[in-house]
């Protein structure tokens, strides 16, 4: 019917940077849908599954992992130049996630491990940063690890467009839709106050506080969240500390040093 069906399927590459490769693995976890999904794209390269060199031409670059070396900076720039669309997947790529915990005082940390010079295999190290700090990212699939169906949904958005809003509201609304009480009523820290919604408040729904893997919302009101913590008998410093797990290099937190 539409022209898109007659066009050649989009050529996709999947690349991993500094990460545990868990998000790439999550893609395989769509199991019964995997063949369906692969049938809609022309998968040219998947780092997890092959040691072939990366092709010269492609349409969509899927990037997992944080940027932690100058080599990685070059890689993502090249990907951006060639790809029409860039999708960052997982907390490492989106917020620099867990790798970013090494960012404060990075040079000293590296020196304390490697001495004057890191081994060549490390590449030229730089403080871990999200992909979006190096290149423009078109779509993000959040969380640690990603929800495989969330990835498929984003891929569909790239292939066909979508009228779905991508809200920046924070998590508590989803938590209430799950009809859950609040950890703060039990003097327990939960990062849902400032974490971007989208995961369905899955951890609080399973009885565990949110640790912020979806990243801070750009509309997060951290000052107000600290006040909530203080009123609820939770030391606000613990909220700041907890944010370091996935949000160390978030620019909106940088001002507090």
């Amino acid at each position: 019917m539409s022209a898109t069906n007659e066009k050649a399927p989009a050529r996709v590459v999947v690349v991993g940077l500094a990460s545990c490769f868990g998000c790439q693995l999550q893609i395989t976890n769509i199991e019964r849908h995997l063949l369906d999904v692969l049938g809609q794209v022309d998968l040219r390269y998947w780092q997890l599954t092959s040691s072939d060199p990366m092709p010269e031409e492609f349409d969509v670059a899927v990037i997992e992992g944080a940027v932690t070396t100058e080599e990685a900076v070059r890689t993502v720039r090249e990907l951006r130049e060639r790809a029409g669309t860039v999708i960052a997947i997982g907390a490492c790529a989106v917020t620099a996630g867990i790798p970013a915990m090494a960012a404060p005082g990075f040079a000293e940390r590296a020196a304390s491990v490697y001495g004057d010079e890191a081994p060549e295999a490390c590449g030229s190290l730089r403080p871990p940063a999200p992909v979006s700090s190096v290149i423009a990212v078109d779509h993000e699939v959040r969380c640690c690890p990603i929800d495989p169906l969330d990835f498929v949904d984003t891929l569909q958005r790239v292939l066909r467009g979508s009228n779905k809003a991508v809200p920046t509201s924070t998590l508590c609304g989803e938590c209430k839709r799950n009809e859950r009480g609040c950890f703060y009523g039990r003097e327990t820290l939960c990062l849902g106050l400032v974490t971007r919604a989208g995961c369905g408040a899955r951890c609080p729904d399973l009885g565990r506080p949110c640790n912020g893997c979806a990243g801070l919302s750009p509309d997060a009101n951290v000052a107000s969240a600290r006040a909530v913590a203080a009123r609820s008998g939770v030391d606000p410093a613990r909220l700041d500390k907890a944010l370091e797990l996935f949000n160390t290099v978030d620019p909106s937190l940088a001002s507090k040093g």
Binding site: S169, T170, E174, R177, G192, L193, A220, N221, V228
Partner: peptide, 9 residues
Amino acid sequence: CLSCTACSS
């Protein structure tokens, strides 16, 4: 406001 939408939920 935390922009959380708990109120409307």
